[in-house]
Amino acid sequence: MSDVQQILADLVAFPSVCRTPNGAIVAYVREHLARHGIAAQIIPGPEGDRSNLFATLGPREVPGYILSAHLDVVPAPAAGWTGDPFRLRRAGDRLIGRGAVDMKGFVACLLATLPEIGRDLQRPLHIALSYDEEVGCVGVRHLIARLPEFCAPPLGCIVGEPSDLHPVLRHKGKVAGRLIVRGRAGHSSRPDLAENAVHHAADLVGLVRDLHERLSREGPFHPAFEPPASTLQVGVIAGGTSVNVVPDQCAIDWEARAIPGTDPMALHAALEEAIAAWLAPLQAEGRPVQVESEVLSGYPALDLPDHADLRAMAEDLSGREARGAVSFGTEAGLYQAAGIPAIICGPGSIAQAHKPDEFIAAADLDACCAMLRRLAARLR
């Protein structure tokens, strides 16, 4: 294996699944940086068993660029895999393993090129590695909050999510929530004496669908996206214990994807308003129906202007034209919300992520390493 492939194999071997401790992989990265004389800041999260990592190549006191990635991966259930998900293997040009493309491939490129990209920089490169990105961009928030302690205000951020090395300017924002409907249990032979929470939950699913359809008809619209409007959908519904028991509880997990210019929380507020209007007449009749609402996760949209300097730089470095928008979300919107221009540009295809036998092509790693060398040369 080449150096970058060996480092990727090392990284894949850490089963750093989201919502689990990540101390081992953080220690590996920290030790790798230390061997090249680079000190890393470890930024623990409130969970107590997960941390972010931040390191600087070059002078900290002048503005530079952040290279951002996450160390967590989605789970890898056995079904569909043709080998151990946490042991990198090669099939032709494909390097197969959980996280190979999303997004340990980019991290491997960063670590493999350290001896070259860290030399004689007049402006710094910052390495920012986060945890629990896959469950709502959780860890990076704590890292971003502490950036003023670690470096001068950055000029920009490149988030190395898989984009076939095409710079990406925009993605939708997101909010995910849970609704818990509470009614009154009873025997199914006397539903008139109970309050069926699953039936009421079906009405709330209809409210989510209705709001989605209204946005699809009326907008606002953004032509860079497919679909061009904000969206809502229900992903999980769970309630009841037996067919002969009227259920007293039902939970609904839903999400909204908001185009740039629409606050995801505004969609949450619109849904809560519709639920309140639906619930009011039931409670006025004295019926024991309640709805609890919880926000599970969320992040803002990314919306880098077409004329941004960061776009021109990323196109020059990657040698590939920018793409207007992608459908998946990233940490880039959070960097932008913090006042740091951000763009997505990383190796491999998102089409290979989150599936059995996830892979990245060896040639994609080589192309990303070349891009990082060009970035470092620009900053010397």
Rank of each mutant, 00 (worst) to 15 (best):
V326C: 06
P341Q: 00
L193T: 14
R50M: 01
A9D: 05
R89C: 07
F54D: 10
P115L: 11
E321Q: 08
I38F: 10
R123G: 03
A13M: 00
G186P: 12
D72W: 10
P227A: 11
E213H: 13
E213V: 07
E149S: 08
V73Q: 02
I7G: 06
P21A: 11
V135H: 01
S293Y: 04
A342N: 11
P191R: 04
A152M: 08
H126F: 14
D316T: 13
V62L: 04
G348D: 04
K174A: 15
I275D: 11
A145M: 12
E61I: 05
P220K: 12
A370W: 07
V175G: 08
V138A: 01
R323F: 10
A325R: 02
T241C: 13
E272F: 01
E61V: 05
V73K: 01
G118L: 07
D192R: 15
F359R: 04
I350Q: 14
P260V: 04
R373T: 04
P75F: 13
G235Q: 01
D72F: 04
V107E: 06
A376N: 07
D120A: 14
S2I: 06
G261V: 02
A112R: 07
R184L: 14
D210G: 08
R119N: 03
I343D: 09
L147C: 05
G45R: 09
S163A: 10
T82F: 12
F328W: 15
Q352Y: 14
E358N: 08
R380Q: 15
A185S: 14
H36E: 09
A128T: 08
I25G: 04
V107Y: 03
A362S: 07
L147W: 02
C345E: 04
R257W: 05
S318N: 08
S327M: 13
I360S: 05
G37V: 04
G80E: 06
S297A: 15
V198T: 10
R146Q: 15
L296Q: 09
A76K: 02
E218W: 09
L204H: 05
H307P: 02
A362K: 04
S189F: 05
A91T: 11
D303Q: 10
A363H: 13
A258V: 11
G83P: 01
I252H: 03
A24P: 06
L155H: 12
F14H: 15
E116I: 11
E273N: 12
D203V: 12
E358P: 04
A69C: 15
A251W: 00
L302T: 07
V62Q: 07
G118K: 08
I96E: 14
A128E: 07
A308P: 02
R94D: 11
P153L: 09
L375C: 13
A194R: 09
A197C: 02
L67T: 01
Q249A: 15
I259W: 02
G136F: 09
S318G: 14
H171D: 13
H70P: 14
H268F: 15
T113M: 03
I43E: 12
